[in-house]
Amino acid sequence: MVPESLTQAFTLTQAIEAAATRSDWVKAAALVETRAPLLKSLQPPQPPEALDIIRAIQRIDSAVAIHAQAEKDAMAVRQSHAMQQIESVSLYQTTGML
């Protein structure tokens, strides 16, 4: 028998995955905080069905973490590009004042 807290945690995990797919990281983080006590409440041993759900949660969490890292990397590239543009504009303004 699968504990109700694990069923709820899996539902929240699916919601976290959906939020991450939309790049709604604020919502994803809030859902993670809501889910944490449910996962922490689980005690060993767990039946095989529960272990399957736990493994599914781990796979989803891993995919979300990879997606978050990719989003972070892309944001860092955009920030770097924006900083270069600011430097170029600043140089132009400085040169134009000579």
Rank of each mutant, 00 (worst) to 15 (best):
M75Q: 05
A20M: 08
S41V: 10
Q85I: 12
L42C: 03
R55W: 10
T7D: 06
K40N: 07
P44R: 09
A9Q: 11
A65M: 03
Q84C: 05
D24H: 15
I57L: 11
A28Q: 06
E4C: 06
Q58C: 04
T34F: 06
T94W: 10
L91M: 04
T21P: 03
H67D: 04
P47L: 13
D61H: 05
V89E: 01
Q8P: 07
L42S: 05
R78W: 01
A15V: 01
L12R: 06
A18I: 02
V2E: 06
W25L: 14
R78N: 05
D52L: 04
P45D: 07
E4W: 02
Q79N: 02
S23R: 15
P37E: 04
L51Y: 04
A29Y: 13
L39V: 09
I86Y: 08
H81Q: 13
Q93P: 03
T21C: 02
A19D: 09
K27N: 15
A70C: 03
E17S: 02
T95Y: 02
P45I: 09
I60S: 13
T11F: 00
Q58P: 04
R55S: 13
L12Q: 02
A65V: 09
R59K: 15
M83S: 09
L51S: 01
A70N: 15
A18P: 05
A50S: 13
A36H: 10
F10A: 01
E87A: 14
H81K: 11
P37I: 08
M75D: 02
S80I: 12
R78I: 11
Q14M: 02
A18T: 03
R78P: 00
D24M: 14
E17W: 06
Q84Y: 09
S90R: 10
I60K: 13
H67K: 15
G96W: 00
M83G: 08
D24R: 08
V26Y: 07
E49I: 00
P47S: 05
L6M: 10
S88H: 02
S90N: 08
Q69R: 15
E87W: 01
V32P: 04
A19E: 10
H67Y: 13
R55N: 12
L91S: 10
A76L: 12
Y92H: 00
T21D: 09
S5A: 12
